[in-house]
Simulated assay, not measured.
Amino acid sequence: MKNLYILDDHPIVTEGLSQLLANNHNYQITTGQHHSELYNYLNHATPDLLIIDYEIQEHTALEILSYLRQKALQIPVLIYTMHTEFWIIKLLTKAEVAGIVTKNDKIDEIEKAIERILEENSKYYSPTALHIVLSIVGDQSAAKLVNYIPSPREHEIIQMLSNGLTSDDIAHQLNLSKNTIDTMRKNILLKSGATNVSHLMRIAFLKGWIAI
């Protein structure tokens, strides 16, 4: 059974989400309305996923993310919020949250996000959040962004490209021919919908394949 912790200072949200998830899924749900409740909980337990609003009373999700890093707690965080301001979404993506769902999205988006994060270990942006994220980077490859998942070898090559390695460099490190690497690069661009390596890096950042 997966353990979820929901942090939101609106009881109607925590109660509604708890009921939805408990009825439809085999989740153990814990809720809190203040960051101190969460911190106390983390002293004796580690949830599989944190679901938190961006703004909790006088605190923000960014402060909580900073706290998790300071404590070296590797817990994925799903943001569920009314805030859709450009700068907030940008800060959250840079903070490498596991997902963003807005309260303007359909309720099943929260279930999709939880499943994607917990079962596939990947990031998830709801349609509203994804539209904002894509506008940040000027990327209109939404369909490809959502569907393509690189293989372990493709992921390795994407990581190397993000570090500035050339096809020759990658071929040498992987003990493969340059022609093989060039072919794999072309396939990655095709599958991801990217037009070039720079475009691919933007997509990779959004999907959480690399960190910038």
Rank of each mutant, 00 (worst) to 15 (best):
G32R: 01
S122H: 14
N26E: 14
L189F: 02
A129W: 12
S141E: 14
P152L: 03
W209N: 05
L50I: 04
L161S: 01
M1R: 06
L118Q: 13
E37L: 07
E109S: 14
V146A: 05
D53G: 07
T93S: 13
Y27G: 08
L68I: 02
D53W: 00
A142Y: 11
L49Y: 07
P11S: 13
T60H: 05
M160E: 05
Y124Q: 10
N26F: 08
I114S: 13
N3Q: 11
N163I: 07
K186D: 01
E63C: 04
T81K: 00
K90C: 09
R116M: 11
D168A: 12
P127A: 11
G193L: 02
I51A: 12
L200I: 03
K191C: 02
Y125F: 11
V13C: 08
W87Y: 11
K144H: 13
A142W: 13
E115I: 09
L91A: 14
L118R: 13
D169F: 02
Y67I: 05
S141I: 07
D48S: 04
A98R: 08
I158T: 03
A143F: 10
A171N: 00
E120W: 08
N147C: 07
P150K: 03
P127F: 12
I203V: 05
N43A: 11
W87R: 12
D169P: 01
T195Q: 14
I136G: 02
A98S: 10
G164E: 04
G32D: 09
L174K: 06
L206R: 07
T128S: 15
S192H: 04
P150I: 00
L92W: 15
L174R: 06
R185F: 01
I56N: 05
V101F: 10
S66T: 09
E119R: 10
K103F: 10
S122R: 14
Y5R: 03
S66Q: 12
Y80N: 14
K90V: 11
K94M: 15
N163M: 00
I29L: 08
K94G: 15
W87E: 15
T195K: 10
L206W: 12
T81H: 03
Y67H: 06
S177M: 00
A204V: 01
Q173K: 11
G164D: 04
K144P: 09
Y27M: 08
V133N: 06
S167M: 01
P152D: 01
L20P: 09
K178G: 03
I6P: 05
L118Y: 12
E96T: 08
I212Y: 10
N175Q: 03
T30C: 12
A45L: 09
I210Y: 01
T166I: 01
A129G: 10
I79R: 01
H83Q: 14
N121H: 15
A72I: 10
L189R: 02
N196D: 02
Q70W: 07
